[in-house]
């Protein structure tokens, strides 16, 4: 299928600012789905609120545009009722790790088979350039005109320690790697997180004098290095890209299905045909 078959053309040109990295993630994500050959009707995309979250409106999958920070709660419900579907949850850095931080860590802890794409532009783009938990110490934001004194989260470290079983990072500069990592994340059975460094030239770029969109992407090239490289040992400030975690661990929906089977044997389940519709002991 062609790129056009995956988008809702009637909403184009899209609403993002010229050069916004979120559009490059949209582009790479479409290629990933196309290369995997997944039927678009087997994909559910659930997003929260933010410039990043607007991505769901442009894609012709089953889509839900939900509440700021809460996309993973909706996605968990959908995945548990229809585990055969592929769940994609694109999130802004604020959406994922400020207001949605608890949803993020607990979904990761359960290892539910959902693919999260953290579209990290280190700022609250949609609401006017406030700093986020990923802006970083010393950065500038509309709410930190004298520099930000908050230390940042590292999305990869959080995903790793919370229990995600696939964790990777790329940037909008590294377009082929970005696409490849999204493919791996979708294929992985379990909670997958791909952090993608994205540029917000309008707020983060302007405030921090990082230049226009392609200058910000040049910077991404400069500050990154493949995971485990020698360069990282020589310069610890470099940001690693690539796959950090790829492990097998029991997946939540599959385990839940087993619990239902056991409960059925004990006569605690009313509808064996669907396996759902449970009742408490004594009420059946």
């Amino acid at each position: 299928m062609a790129v056009k078959d995956y988008i809702r053309e009637r909403f184009f040109p899209q609403m993002w600012c010229p050069g916004c990295g979120h559009g490059i993630i949209l582009n790479g994500l479409i290629r990933a789905v196309e290369e995997l050959g997944i039927n678009k009707n087997d994909i559910v995309m659930v997003s929260g609120i933010g410039c990043s979250a607007r991505i769901s409106g442009y894609l012709d999958f089953h889509t839900m545009h939900t509440l700021h920070g809460r996309a993973l709660a909706f996605a968990t419900g959908i995945k548990m009722s229809r585990p055969e579907l592929n769940l994609l949850v694109p999130m802004g850095d604020g959406d994922a790790l400020a207001i949605g931080g608890n949803h993020f860590i607990h979904a990761a802890r359960r290892n539910i088979d959902i693919t999260v794409i953290v579209m990290n532009n280190r700022v609250y783009g949609m609401t006017g350039g406030q700093f986020s938990p990923l802006s970083g110490y010393g950065s500038l934001a509309t709410t930190a005109p004298y520099t930000n004194i908050d230390h940042p989260f590292d999305a990869v470290d959080i995903a790793k320690s919370a229990g995600a079983t696939f964790v990777a990072r790329s940037t909008t500069y590294h377009i082929r790697q970005l696409t490849d990592l999204i493919k791996k994340a979708i294929t992985h059975k379990g909670f997958s997180v791909v952090e993608i460094l994205s540029q917000c030239p309008t707020y983060y770029g302007r405030k921090n004098r990082e230049g226009n969109a392609y200058e910000m992407m040049e910077l991404m090239k400069q500050i990154t290095t493949p995971v485990g490289s020698k360069a990282k040992k020589e310069n610890p400030d470099l940001v690693e890209t690539g796959v950090f975690v790829e492990i097998d661990k029991p997946e939540y929906c599959a385990q839940y299905e087993k619990i239902i089977e056991r409960a059925k044997k004990d006569g605690l389940v009313r509808s064996p045909s669907t396996g759902r519709g449970r009742v408490s002991p004594g009420l059946g």
Binding site: F12, W16, G21, H22, L26, N27, I175
Partner: peptide, 13 residues
């Protein structure tokens, strides 16, 4: 095709 792959607006093929 790097231009096509990196375009945020799907505007060049």
């Amino acid at each position: 095709k790097l231009c096509e792959l990196r375009c945020p607006d799907l505007a060049i093929e």
